[in-house]
Design a protein around this nucleic acid. Structure first.
Lengths: 229, 229
DNA sequence: AAAACCCTTCGCCGCGCAGCGAACTGTCCG
DNA sequence: CGGACAGTTCGCTGCGCGGCGAAGGGTTTT
């Protein structure tokens, strides 16, 4: 019997501190040791050991720049596999309660390299409603439309082997939203256009007033309650 | 930040004994405690504890029948998530060596509810070559063809939300083969027609002479080396 | 040069847990 | 009824590993 080394991966994600770090890294940004240590609630020494383990497991890569070491997920496949796991993992009820209290914190955020959270779910729903996107065989198929260009998306001429618009299951909503190259384009464009901004210290993103207006104009999407305070 | 309880799943698959059991269960059959204990190389008491943990994690369900308890994977989602993990997990080189020595053992086998291994990969390649199946956006799309009926597959009238032919990455070959409802139909038909048979005590399946002839006739597929001794 | 800062390595403590032997429950069979 | 067998529970042992404090190597700032 051939057994993939699940245990190596499993051991990597079997610890609450490490999963906390991984969830942090799912934002797609690179983080320093100290930041991840704070996120997991442990000292830097401990975080250092955890990150070395995650590195050995191939889930995380490190990049030294000056006196800081920046850690990030090893690739989109890793983020994708973790999403899949999240789909069958029981949600943390404790943190779910925090989410309700925190309110907007989880409303708009990024998932590795694309938008996630309620905003992304709402946008995807708008794509489907307007016929810009079709769900078929559990995959997304983009339909040529003028709206795409306004969202910073240029559709490929021919469908490639990799899905251009990959469905990604949101952790909180348990609903699909757009990932893959199209998701990346949308996030890049939204950041470049100032529709969303990264928080300085808090995690997550904030939807700006221009962003709200643009989404309303292009997709007829009302973003009530999603604008950060 | 919302964190799915990766750690619960992670702890479940962080132990080599448990992963061994899970790989065994990936065959799709139900196994008794004793069988799984033998597969993992531990005593029944230890296996019992492991299985209770896997049950608590929601990966495995147990069914009591007489004095035996049959364990099986909790569902196709679990099998799917494990496949995804296997895609980024380093393969076990030790067992890879065993595979080469064992030869036909890994050639034909099932992956939860569909055929897997080199045979399934070869069949999928034949589907694609003959135009019965198309790969698009990383998904499979079945094309109506007479061959499908001979393989026990009746194509659905309209594409549903769930993919009918889901691509599944094989552990050993790292190549795609057909899973999902279509994969299940093919395996069911192959078992029902006597094309493949389950080994009595050994794991895996064996391709019969009628099976070889049928595949050659329908798909022009030569199965040299895949027939069990 | 000294101070501040980021990260890592080392050594230690303590918990958690995999593993087994022994004993117990429940089921099937003669 | 009594033996055989599957599974579980209990108690124990030993290893692994998460955690931190202390100390050391590098880099940036003053």
């Amino acid at each position: 019997m051939i057994t993939p080394r699940f245990d190596i991966l499993g051991q990597a994600i079997s610890d609450a501190s490490r999963t906390q770090m991984l969830c942090e890294l799912m934002e797609g940004r690179a983080y320093t040791n100290k930041e991840l240590a704070a996120a997991a609630g442990v000292t830097p020494q401990t975080a250092s050991a955890h990150l070395r383990l995650l590195q050995d497991a191939g889930l995380v890569v490190a990049e030294k720049r000056g006196r800081c070491v920046y850690h990030r997920l090893a690739g989109a496949e890793v983020a994708h596999a973790l999403e899949q796991l999240a789909a069958i993992a029981p949600a943390d009820s404790l943190h779910r309660a925090q989410q309700r209290k925190a309110g907007d914190l989880a409303q708009v955020r990024s998932c590795y390299d694309h938008l996630a959270g309620p905003l992304a779910v709402a946008m995807t729903r708008a794509f489907l409603d307007r016929g810009m996107l079709q769900e078929e065989h559990g995959a997304f198929r983009a339909v040529p439309a003028g709206e795409w260009l306004k969202l910073g998306v240029i559709l490929p001429e021919k469908p490639g082997r990799q899905p251009f618009a990959r469905p990604c299951l949101d952790w909180t909503e348990r609903k699909l939203h757009v990932a893959g190259p199209m998701g990346r384009l949308i996030l890049d464009h939204a950041l470049g256009s100032g529709w969303v901004k990264r928080h300085r210290h808090k995690r997550g993103l904030m939807l700006t007033t221009p962003g709200t207006r643009a989404l309303e104009q292009i997709l007829d999407l009302s973003c009530g309650g999603l604008v950060a305070a």
